[in-house]
Nucleic acid binder design. Structure first.
Ligand SMILES: [Mn+2]
Ligand SMILES: [Mn+2]
Ligand SMILES: [Zn+2]
Ligand SMILES: [Zn+2]
Lengths: 153, 153
DNA sequence: TATATTAATAAGAATCATTACTATTCGTGA
DNA sequence: TCACGAATAGTAATGATTCTTATTAATATA
């Protein structure tokens, strides 16, 4: 049900070119490890952990090290190319989807599903927050049971 | 600016009695380690990590072990007595505040501040989520810069 | 109150997730 | 093509959490 749709093959390749440009702008060398990690994360829609990405990438880049995946994800995050997802789990999880969206988490299977919610994005935050400080970003997390985890009737 | 107010000394002691009852209902023995951990977390309003709690408690219970703090927090969480807070950090953080509330996170100092937001609690979730499944809980995370971290003019 | 039962604890070892170190490789600009 | 520095692979180290086990303590019962 994700409303944040997957890129077509063509859109993906232009995404990759844009990614290379971002790297050059940020003075990051365009290595094939970085390309693979970024592409794998872009194609993934399950907010994978570093280790999940590593296991997927190693089939194509058999010598890549887990450390490179961790290091590269941290680099991408620092340059605003990807996002680290807030969870309650011990392993950090990541996404390349930078379009504003929110998360629905199934408390049975743990799957994190993307969705958009314009009325939330536009809603006014409580007045009391003015004294707290300046709000730049907002994110909604819904928790429930996804359809495939619901007991069949 | 937290709208979720701290308990008065009297309210705290009745909270502790209620906590003891919860333990008995859940067939959990009422140990002084559990009482101290629960009380410390109830009085804390900074969503402390297990280690932060440990360092605070050890001044009163010098022989308590860090493992007991971790184990006890996990037990409390399992029985719905406390909550594990979603963060992007490597250390898990906890709170005893079970009144529905949301979080404003300062991206400079990292402090997590509680606030209530009734219009968000009551807002209708997007229709598209119906096909996703059943939503039980919702939580808003705001990110920004808190007043004490804002550059003075 | 004393005793028996069993859960909970403390201490340290083990594991899991992530980061640091270092010799080597590789991307890039001259 | 070459020189340079940044990035990587492999491995060690660290930080966070959980496990193992002998001991202690909470509670039910006599
Ligand atoms: Mn997402
Ligand atoms: Mn809170
Ligand atoms: Zn599910
Ligand atoms: Zn701050």
């Amino acid at each position: 049900m994700s409303q944040v749709k997957q890129p077509t093959p063509h859109a993906l390749s232009s995404l990759m070119t844009e990614f290379e440009n971002s790297c050059r702008r940020a003075d990051l060398k365009v290595t094939h490890q970085r390309l693979e990690i970024y592409r794998e994360l872009t194609e993934a829609h399950d907010h994978p952990s570093a280790e999940m990405l590593y296991r997927r990438i190693i089939t194509r880049l058999p010598t890549i090290s887990l450390d490179t995946v961790y290091r590269t994800l941290a680099t991408f995050e620092k340059h605003g190319l990807i996002t680290r997802v807030q969870t309650v789990e011990s392993q950090a999880r990541f996404e390349a989807e930078m379009v504003k969206h929110h998360h629905a988490v199934c408390s049975k299977c743990g799957v994190i599903t993307d969705f958009t919610w314009e009325t939330f994005d536009a809603a006014q935050v409580p007045d009391t927050l003015a004294v707290w400080g300046k709000v730049f970003k907002r994110h909604a997390v819904l928790e429930g049971i996804c359809t495939s985890c619901s007991p069949k009737v």
